[in-house]
């Protein structure tokens, strides 16, 4: 079960390419706007932005329906947007309003939507994979063809919970795909200082599952590699560890960052030169799938949605004091 590098073999249909593009731009615009809203004091708490990693969520989620489950990470907005999350209840949640997906109870780190198959961002690094494994167990138990996908980072790859989930998923041959978004940092610590390996996919053979590495800045590469892994899972072939090499443009948390001296501006610029959206837009034009004008229209339409969603969130009420103790328990019998 040696790891392999994913090699692109075919070009997806124009419809798929346009959807991938739209997903990525929606994430980028949501995140950039959320960052601005935090700077403006509209969003309380902590915000972990997904900017830079859009190709991963988009390429993976293109293969999933609402019946497929995902677990997300600290950096979870992008996963929810790609899974079909709407801007209005997402912004409302980040604003702490009662119209949010979690009625203002979860916020950025716990944003979720069960109807979309999104089992939550997670405030605990490595919190998601055991839950995704459990959801995959559910799918197998109920003999449906749905899969679950656990997103986690290179930092989380050192958590025992991830190893336990991966071992059990392989043992039970569960329809579960482990997507490691290796952005090179566990919080503020570079990968070289938190693990002795370069490729997290190396660990796949230890779990008894295939390991695949793909360029996480290339949405078509992610789309293809994720497609294979998800299809394998759907067909009863068991889990795959898919490592996507990617990068986060912002700091671990927030917009401006904490001014910690852990990476260079040059390194950030180098990765921005490989920006997944810019590269993909050039490709779309080259392939004749979209014109520059059409791409601009997509951006404009999304910007308009963002503006409306922010206005909606801003105008939404805060939860009432009497809602505080709601939903601690399920009172239905």
């Amino acid at each position: 079960m040696a790891k392999k590098k994913n090699v692109k073999t075919s070009v997806p249909s124009p419809k798929v390419l346009q959807e991938l593009h739209r997903k990525m731009v929606r994430i980028r615009r949501f995140e950039e706007s959320a960052g601005k809203m935090m700077e403006d004091g509209k969003i309380p708490g902590a915000l972990h932005l997904y900017v830079g990693q859009e190709a991963v969520a988009s390429g993976v989620m293109q293969h999933l329906s609402n019946k497929d489950w995902i677990t997300s990470t600290h950096r979870g907005h992008g996963h929810l947007v790609a899974k079909g999350g709407e801007f209005k209840p997402m912004f409302a949640e980040l604003f702490g309003r009662s119209t949010g997906y979690c009625r203002g109870k979860g916020g950025s780190m716990h944003i979720s939507n069960m109807d979309l198959g999104m089992l939550g961002a997670n405030g605990i690094v490595g919190g998601g994979p055991p839950i995704a494994m459990g959801a995959a167990f559910s799918n197998k138990f109920k003999k449906n063809k749905n899969v679950s996908v656990a997103f986690f980072g290179d930092g989380a790859s050192n958590e025992g919970s991830v190893h336990e989930a991966a071992n059990m998923a392989a043992l039970y041959k569960l329809p579960c795909v482990f997507v490691c978004e290796n952005n090179g940092y566990g919080e503020y610590t570079p990968q070289s200082r938190h693990q002795a390996i370069v490729d997290v996919a190396d660990r796949a053979s230890g779990y008894g599952m295939p390991g695949v590495i793909c360029d996480g800045m290339d949405v078509m590469a992610v789309y293809e590699a994720a497609g294979e892994a998800i299809e394998r899972a759907r067909k009863g072939g068991g889990p795959t560890l898919l490592e996507c090499k990617t990068y986060r443009y912002y700091d671990h948390v927030g917009v401006r960052g904490m001014g910690l001296n852990y990476r260079t501006d040059e390194e950030v610029e180098e990765w921005k030169n490989k920006d997944a959206i810019e590269a993909f837009e050039k490709r779309l034009v080259q392939l004749g799938v979209m014109t520059k004008k059409k791409i601009e229209n997509v951006h404009n339409a999304i910007n308009k949605d963002i503006e409306e969603a922010i206005a909606f969130a801003n105008d939404s009420p805060y939860p009432l004091p009497e809602e505080l103790l709601d939903n601690v328990y399920n009172e239905e019998t």
């Binding site: 489950w69 677990t71 069960m114 089992l119 994979p129 055991p130 839950i131 995704a132 494994m133 459990g134 959801a135 995959a136 167990f137 559910s138 799918n139 138990f141 109920k142 679950s148 025992g160 919970s161 336990e164 989930a165 071992n167 059990m168 043992l171 039970y172």
Partner: peptide, 26 residues
């Protein structure tokens, strides 16, 4: 075997199995 399941000695995994499976209909 589908309903009486031996697990590895992996309590994080076992409890995660309970969380994920219960949240999704089991």
């Amino acid at each position: 075997e589908d309903r009486v399941v031996d697990t590895p000695i992996s309590e994080k995994g076992i409890m995660g199995l309970g969380v994920g499976a219960s949240a999704t209909g089991c």
